[in-house]
C-alpha cells in the first residue's frame, strides 16, 4: 500500500477545492482593505487638520488672541472666549477633583459590597453614556433656575457645575483604575505597621496613584473644554464684548465662539472660526501632552 497517497481523504471529496492561490489572493485583498481603512481614518484626520490650518492661519495673530469679538470680522478676536474657557476649567477642576477622587476612594477602598455600592456603580456606567445635551437640560433646570440665587443664572459657575457633572464619571473611572494599580502589598505593609485604612490611603496609596489620577483628570478636562452642547443649553452667550470679571459673570467659551462664527453665512467669519479651532486644538494638545508625559512617568515607576 502506498502511504503517500491516502485514500478517501478530503482531497478526493468532490466539494473540496484547495485553490491555495485564490485563497492567498483573497488574503492579500483583505489585508489591503484593513490597511486602507486605517489609512482612510488617518487621512481624514490629516485632511481636517490641514483644512483648518489653511482657513485659520491667515487670521491667527496676536491681535486675534487679544481682541474682543466684533461685528466686523477683521477686528474680531477671541479674548473673552479664551478667558471664559480658562475660568470654566478652574470651576470644573475645583469641583470634579475632590468629588471624583473622593467617590473613587470610597468605592475602591472603603465600600463593602452592598446595595449602595452596586447602585452607584451601575449609575456611573450609565451616566457616562448620557448625551451631553441632556446634561445641559439638567443644568438649565437645576443650576439656572432652582439654584439661581447662588449661580445668578447663566454664569461661569452654572456652566462649570454642569460640566463637572458631565465629566464626573470619567474622573471616577480613571481614579479607580489608578487606585487599583497600586499593589496590595503597599496597603498590607501599612496595616502591619498599625495604620488604619484611611491613614494608608492618605499617606501611601493616593500619592502612588497620583500620576494616574492626574492623567485621568487632564483627559476629563480636555473632554469638558471641547464640549459645546452643554454650554449652549446652559446659556453661554454668543456675543460677549467684555472680559468676564469673576465666576458670576456672563461668559462665552472657545467652542461656543467657534460655533457662533461657523454658523454665520460670511466667509470671513468662517476663517475666524478656523483660527479659533487652532487655538482650541493648541490648548488640547498642551493638555494631552502633559497627560502622556505623566502617564509615561507613571509607567516607569511601577
Amino acid at each position: 500500500m502506498d502511504v503517500n497517497e491516502p485514500t478517501g481523504g478530503l482531497e478526493q471529496s468532490p466539494e473540496f477545492v484547495q485553490d491555495l492561490e485564490g485563497r492567498y489572493r483573497l488574503d492579500a485583498i483583505f489585508e489591503f482593505a484593513t490597511w486602507a481603512a486605517t489609512a482612510i481614518a488617518i487621512g481624514v484626520l490629516a485632511w481636517l487638520l490641514i483644512s483648518v490650518l489653511i482657513d485659520g492661519l491667515g487670521t491667527l495673530d496676536w491681535q486675534f488672541i487679544t481682541s474682543f469679538p466684533s461685528r466686523k470680522a477683521e477686528r474680531a478676536g477671541i479674548l473673552p472666549a479664551l478667558q471664559g474657557t480658562i475660568l470654566l476649567m478652574v470651576v470644573v477642576a475645583t469641583f470634579s477633583f475632590p468629588l471624583g477622587v473622593g467617590a473613587a476612594i470610597y468605592l475602591e477602598e472603603f465600600a463593602t459590597d452592598n446595595w449602595f455600592t452596586r447602585v452607584v456603580e451601575i449609575l456611573i456606567g450609565n451616566l457616562a453614556g448620557v448625551p451631553s445635551i441632556i446634561y445641559g437640560l439638567l443644568g438649565l433646570t437645576v443650576f439656572l433656575r432652582l439654584f439661581s440665587d447662588i449661580t445668578q443664572g447663566p454664569t461661569i459657575l452654572s456652566g462649570g457645575l454642569t460640566l463637572t457633572l458631565l465629566i464626573l464619571p470619567v474622573v471616577i473611572v480613571a481614579t479607580r483604575e489608578s487606585l487599583r494599580a497600586v499593589p496590595d502589598s503597599t496597603r498590607l505593609a501599612g496595616f502591619a505597621l498599625g495604620a488604619n485604612r484611611w491613614q494608608v490611603v492618605w499617606s501611601h496609596v493616593l500619592p502612588a496613584a497620583m500620576p494616574g489620577v492626574m492623567t485621568g483628570m487632564i483627559l476629563a478636562l480636555s473632554r469638558a473644554i471641547g464640549d459645546t452642547a452643554t454650554l449652549l443649553v446652559t446659556g453661554a452667550a454668543a456675543f460677549i464684548p467684555f472680559s468676564p470679571d469673576g465666576f458670576l459673570s456672563r461668559y462665552t467659551a472657545l467652542p461656543i465662539q467657534i460655533y457662533n462664527w461657523a454658523s454665520r453665512p460670511q466667509a470671513e467669519f468662517h476663517n475666524l472660526a478656523a483660527s479659533g479651532i487652532i487655538v482650541l486644538m493648541a490648548v488640547l494638545l498642551i493638555m494631552n501632552t502633559t497627560a502622556v508625559v505623566l502617564r509615561n512617568k507613571f509607567q516607569q515607576r511601577s
Binding site: 481614518a41 488617518i42 481624514v44 484626520l45 481636517l48 483648518v52 480636555s222 473632554r223 473644554i225 471641547g226 464640549d227 459645546t228 452642547a229 467652542p255 467657534i258 460655533y259 461657523a262 479651532i277 482650541l280 486644538m281 488640547l284 494631552n288
Partner: peptide, 8 residues
C-alpha cells in the same frame, strides 16, 4: 481622532 471636539 477621538479627542477632536465635535464642534470642530
Amino acid at each position: 481622532l477621538a479627542g477632536v471636539p465635535t464642534v470642530v
